[in-house]
Design a protein around this nucleic acid. Structure first.
Lengths: 141, 141
DNA sequence: CTTGACCCTGAAGTACACTTCAAGGTCTAT
DNA sequence: ATAGACCTTGAAGTGTACTTCAGGGTCAAG
């Protein structure tokens, strides 16, 4: 049969069995088919979904947000226009994250370059590179 | 005087007073100067650092990781070569995050485009777009 | 010289995302 | 048919990142 039990999903994704059950409880994963004896039986695609959850978490999305992302794909109620609005909203959030990560990456790259690989930190004042992040306006009051 | 008290830092950063004190306890912020009466007195630059902490958190870095990033800049011990190695390591982690975010953004953009803004979800099967994320190898066993 | 907005500390409480535990049933190989 | 690796549930425990509470001191305005 093409079904996988929870341990096999765990192995394929690197996520613990317990975490997978937890995701089910949180409705991030649909309740799977069960064997006669009550074992969960997953389609192999479930592993994709679990990996997506992991990745999204590493990118700073809460499980609630991951759920919202997945629901954009899953949901059967609500209009397509709603989905579009939400998707575009998420896109702009994500683009902000990408910009921020680029800023941090550039600062770290500059830092590494200026360090040349030898000398001690007193010869590396360019560690200020990170201060170039957030170089704009303060609060207004 | 050029010093700001904790409430002013909070206002400029959008981070609560309590969280700022918490960051100090966790050594993400250096212990500031104190007034005669014990009030914390911050240099305005501290706001930059606090905003950096917030941004980095939103990008999926734990406070411990943020600390490591900030330490790359701050530290006075350890050789510059060490800093370089760590910085480049972080750069590749960050580049992975950027790739993942690009994947999610592209999928969401595609989803939004195909939705055209009207019709209901039964006319939007492209919600499968997100499945194109993680399109590669399964576990090896 | 008091009122209200601010600051201080330490301790306890909360939300999130799990992990561990307890107590037990199932499956496969020998 | 029994050992060992798997699966089940529910409840309690853990680490992170705060927030709230209790009890009090400080500062600027009127």
């Amino acid at each position: 049969m093409t079904y996988l039990n929870i341990g096999q999903i765990a192995k394929r994704t690197g996520v613990t069995v317990e975490a997978i059950r937890f995701y089910e409880k949180q409705a991030l994963l649909p309740e799977p088919r069960r064997s006669a004896s009550g074992y969960r039986q997953y389609l192999p695609e479930t592993a994709k979904r679990v990996r997506f959850i992991q990745r999204a978490k590493e990118l700073g999305f809460s499980l609630k947000e991951v759920n919202a992302l997945l629901s954009l794909r899953d949901t059967q109620d609500g209009s397509c226009a709603d989905v579009k609005v939400q998707a575009l909203q998420k896109v702009s959030e994500i683009e902000q994250k990408i910009r921020d990560l680029n800023r941090i990456r550039d600062a770290l790259t500059e830092l590494a370059e200026k360090c040349g690989g030898r000398g001690d930190l007193s010869e590396c004042p360019i560690l200020d590179a990170l201060d170039e992040i957030e170089d704009f306006a303060d609060g207004s009051s």
